[in-house]
Design a protein around this nucleic acid. Sequence first.
DNA 1: AAAGATTGATGGATCAATCTTA
DNA 2: TAAGATTGATCCATCAATCTTT
Lengths: 155, 155
Amino acid sequence: MKPFPTKDVTRVWARLVKAQQIVLASIEQRLKAAKLPPLAWYDTLLELERAEGRGLRPFELEREMLLAQYNLSRLVDRLEEEGYVERRPFEGDGRGQLIAITVSGKSMRRRMWAVYGPEIQCAFGDHLTPRQAKSLGALLGLLIEKSPGRRRLKT
Amino acid sequence: MKPFPTKDVTRVWARLVKAQQIVLASIEQRLKAAKLPPLAWYDTLLELERAEGRGLRPFELEREMLLAQYNLSRLVDRLEEEGYVERRPFEGDGRGQLIAITVSGKSMRRRMWAVYGPEIQCAFGDHLTPRQAKSLGALLGLLIEKSPGRRRLKT
DNA sequence: AAAGATTGATGGATCAATCTTA
DNA sequence: TAAGATTGATCCATCAATCTTT
């Protein structure tokens, strides 16, 4: 049995896509205008900075960020070429590695935040009261929590 | 002056991205598994079907869908190659054209909906009560309406 | 010159296959 | 054989330049 959504539910889904698109596009535009890397680099650097000390395994990063393995592999290539991250062998499992953020990577993340942060406020935060933001967060939380435990994106 | 967002606002923004990503990924997965085209094809075909009779100018489609011009041009190429849409000259302005959906295009849109619809319900609708859906729709509406009138994505 | 639309070149995303170690 | 990760080939997205008509 495959139940179809009501028109209302469909409309709300369409709005979710559109709202995200509008805000995301304005953020990417600002980053580009400031000659900074795309948002995916920020997300990666942030995850790595939060894991400071340890660094992260590629597959951990992959799951956290909902990226396919091959996709992440090449993203890390680019970040490494620019000197923002380092790959280190992982002691204890010869298959694995640890990705760690460099000093230069932390600096770039901060420079990106100087553009990203204000644009979140301008394109997103400014349109919601604190109450509305809280309410939106709770509703989105329902969609995220209930999602059937992060499956891998690749077979 | 560039005010930074509160941690709460930032967290809600992150959730918006993640919730959309999760649902979108599961939809694209289902379409692929059913050997159907990607969601962008559905969106395009739907817009064209809604405009039935007239057809749409590429720039109208572009604005409606928040796509860059060159991007749309090649998307239409692919749709035309598969016989799902037709390009016609636009009488009255030699620069323009009209894109119209074909019978085969309508049929494909229906086939896609048979997969897309149930997955919207399953990955999205099922996690919200009607009240919650309504509330979410209203909040997202705030973000969309207030967005500074759809700018072009290309210079 | 500006609007509507396309194209060549390039970079990123994706699929399938591969390599290494467990 | 499976897990962790990479690679080659291909497709799509993007930038900049172009073409045509207004």
